[in-house]
Design a protein around this nucleic acid. Structure first.
Lengths: 178, 178
DNA sequence: GCTTGTTTGTACCGAATGGTACAACATCGC
DNA sequence: GCGATGTTGTACCATTCGGTACAAACAAGC
């Protein structure tokens, strides 16, 4: 179901597609999601959010070794986005007017990612202003890398860009070591 | 018409919406675009491409003053994307499976942007490998900034990120001045 | 085995979808 | 004026859309 939305977007994913993707008939679909397509998408976004919170956000927020936490973040993210071969549904949905219904979810997702990463970097001794700056740049850079890698059909480009952002983060940490 | 696609995406922009947006009835629409919605979208993308070629790409490619060319690029891009309030249709369309029909257009758009920017930076004395690296990072960064700025509803974030990329480009130029 | 509540498939709904046919209309060279 | 060409609105097409109704199938408790 998540993959169906990821492939076709919200508008493009028809109930027929969703039904085929899940193996459930319309009856079942509307039994579990009385709110229709919107509730289905919301559930998918909630699922994604949960994954990011446990795998990315909290490890960053509670990191005892910031450099290691950043390294695992980029590693996890690279796998998750299949090196840019997989789209970021949250970012995508935010682009269109159909995403207005999920605006809050989209906003909190990115806001938390940035703040978690910033806190991690900051905990390593980097001044808070620079930390936020680096975090913004990294999250934004990952989103851009997905767009570009998909557009050019070049997964290597995703890896290159993410690696550079990782390097920038680690460099800042090394420079401000206490 | 472009704005209709920009707002609703390819799937979301129905003929009714397109008709309303252009003020043309279905008859006229199908008179000018016998290929239907796909041809309309293609025309819009061609239009966008033309604008970027004349306003962004060729000035970069033929720049006599690389630093100035970069500065005008970021300025033009900032205005064009309304500081992130306006979506990059090319990048957006590339994310979904509906964009497969326009894959070539999407690909050449980004490829040319990167190569034009890289050539400009390189003409200022920056080694070609670094130049390509910086160009990739900048174009990707702009795309990410659009996604993030829209998601967070924060145009200032777009400006901040673009400005930082501009600074990185100018810095590289200054460092490798001949 | 019967009851109760959930899960499923199927038939169906009105509305909207992308697209076509075509007659009325305008425009223009001549 | 007249025909030729291009443009427009309208009615219409089959299909698909998201969504509902509901009865059959199922499961669990007792």
């Amino acid at each position: 179901m998540a993959e169906a939305f990821r492939k076709h977007g919200f508008e493009g994913a028809s109930l027929a597609i969703l039904s085929r993707a899940t193996g459930l008939g319309k009856g079942s679909l509307y039994n579990f999601f009385p709110g229709g397509k919107e509730e289905m998408m919301d559930a998918v976004l909630a699922d994604i959010d949960r994954w990011f919170v446990t795998t990315i956000f909290t490890p960053l927020e509670q990191a005892r070794d910031p450099a290691a936490a950043i390294r695992t973040m980029t590693a996890e993210v690279t796998v998750y986005f299949r090196s840019g071969g997989r789209v970021c549904l949250v970012g995508w949905i935010g682009l269109g007017s159909s995403g207005d219904a999920f605006a809050v979810r989209v906003k909190t997702y990115f806001a938390r990612w940035i703040s978690a990463l910033a806190r991690c970097v900051q905990s390593g001794g980097v001044p808070s202003l620079l930390a936020v700056q680096l975090a913004e740049e990294t999250v934004s850079g990952i989103q851009g890398a997905i767009v570009l890698a998909r557009a050019l059909g070049e997964e290597a480009l995703f890896l290159r860009i993410v690696r550079r952002h990782e390097a920038a983060l680690l460099d800042a940490l090394a420079r401000h070591t206490r």
